[in-house]
Amino acid sequence: MLIGTHTSPTTMICADLAIGWQTGFDLTLAIRPIGDSAQMERTVNSAALNLADPLFRLLSVRISSGEGEQLPPSLENMFPGDTLSLVPPKSAVMSASIAVGGTTRTLLRTPYAGSIRCIDPSNNSVAFTVVGKVVTLTAAATTPVRIYYLPVLSLTVFEPFDLSYRTSQATVAWNIYTEETGGVA
């Protein structure tokens, strides 16, 4: 419990939710691909088949409050169809990799500025440059290189939020279900 610092303890960045003091003490982010990314069938010859278009490879994000939440975030504009931009907390990093001999990798999502780390299996930093979504190692990888980054997620609220108050404890509980907005420019 951080006493005296009047900010939220979470490292999640979401201006649209206006998270601040007494909010976000114990947030849970559940991230998984949306259901529409899978239209699984099998062919008559038993081969697995995903009938879903690759454009639908999108993530869903459920943000839930935890113990000790005292004030809800700004939920008034979080009705289904409303959009928000979100950078997950530092522990919720996305990961990619570059195989031995490779030098570049195009990330699927826009990385949050300064959040990219490239490390080898022994946790040593590997030098790289980044332009937009393209990560380029300064030298070809000699070991598999893991890339961790915080994506900037463009989300759309898909379900009505839950918000409940517990008066004896003076606490609140809330959660909101979003999915990546998708679409092509």
């Binding site: 069938e41 062919t43 008559v44 010859n45 038993s46 081969a47 088949l49 009938l51």
Partner: peptide, 9 residues
């Protein structure tokens, strides 16, 4: 066509 979906034929 060798990718007909099973149970639909």
């Amino acid at each position: 066509v060798n990718v007909a979906i099973s149970k639909t034929v």
